[in-house]
């Protein structure tokens, strides 16, 4: 998939742990780990909303698109 999740970068900037973020968002640590590694198939808007609220950022700060066919 061409969508890259930069959640760990944002988490490092805000100095928040996985456990704390998972609790704030309302998902399990396992799911958060899947999200960080880009193994998820889809993200609900409600989850994205909760992440942006918790990390005080924009969706574009967490999600990036890279065309896999190029290069």
């Amino acid at each position: 998939m061409g969508i890259i999740v930069n959640l760990d970068v944002m988490m490092a900037k805000r100095k928040i742990s996985s456990q704390a973020l998972a609790e704030q968002i309302g998902i399990t640590q396992a799911n958060l780990s899947l999200l960080k590694t880009g193994k998820v198939r889809a993200v609900r808007f409600s989850t994205l909303d909760a992440i942006c609220k918790a990390l005080d950022c924009q969706p574009g700060d967490i999600l990036e698109y890279k065309d896999e066919s190029v290069g």
């Binding site: 998820v40 198939r41 889809a42 609900r44």
Partner: peptide, 8 residues
């Protein structure tokens, strides 16, 4: 099912 399971 995988789609549902891997939707956060």
């Amino acid at each position: 099912k995988e789609d549902v399971d891997l939707t956060v």
